[in-house]
Design a binder for these strands. Structure first.
Lengths: 128, 128
DNA sequence: TCGCTAATAGTAATGTATTAGCAGTAGGAG
DNA sequence: CTCCTACTGCTAATACATTACTATTAGCGA
């Protein structure tokens, strides 16, 4: 039989669509548990794997932490990310301030790049 | 008594100074074992911790992999990194092509940024 | 050179993120 | 409505990087 629609899947995707930022499996779990209290982390991972496989969501990897995920729609527009060092949440930064490099020694073949900004997000900066 | 000079420490630091790029603990181990064949990974980590603590070396973190380390001298000049997706080695990219962002919504406080370029290094690109 | 003890090698243990296994639950085709 | 089986929740297992532990080795001050 084919893949089934379940409440868990609907809620998890809904969480990602409503969130204005990439979320970690744990964040997704916490948020989705408001609708499905018994939701388990294993299910979050399973659903994420499926959504990533069919291209509905895209991973945003971060050094030292688990990946965040955002919807394919968001990812369609080239952009980068801001990582708050206090609350560890990740936010989207529209556009790309990278001047494609004259600096790299020749011979290297660049296929993509990531820019990560670090600092304090609005909320955390306010609570300084 | 104070900290002691050992062959292991000398060799490990030497490896990092001679290498033109940030290295992972495993890479450091392999390279250093040419001089100290019995060197153990535990010692590499211990020495790294010490060198990082006193500021002699600086970590370069990478999503999904263990951190690389480079000497404080290299790190002194603002630069970024290139990560070869075939051999997974990391190389330095002199300078910074980032135009400091007009795009970020106000209120965020940026303290630093990382730019990671991905693709194939010279050697791997040649072996395509 | 001697002796104290920091440092090492080797290995077991730890921490953490992700996955597998399994019995029970619930989509959805017929 | 029924039945088949994909999906779920739970927990144990895995993978991995990093650290702790311990007997042994080797800096280095006297």
């Amino acid at each position: 039989m084919a893949i089934r629609q379940t409440k868990q899947k609907r809620v998890i995707l809904g969480v990602l669509e409503k969130a204005g930022r990439p979320m970690s499996p744990q964040e997704i779990l916490s948020s989705a548990q408001q609708d499905v209290p018994l939701l388990s982390l294993a299910t979050v991972y399973r659903v994420i794997r499926g959504l990533e496989a069919d291209g509905t969501i895209v991973p945003v990897s971060i050094p030292g932490e688990s990946a965040r995920y955002e919807t394919h729609l968001k990812a369609a527009h080239h952009h980068h990310h801001f990582h708050c060092e206090r609350c560890s949440r990740v936010f989207d930064v529209p556009g790309c301030g990278l001047r494609v490099d004259a600096h790299l020694p020749g011979g290297y073949r660049i296929t993509r790049h990531e820019v990560m900004l670090y600092g304090s997000c609005i909320e955390c900066a306010a609570t300084s």
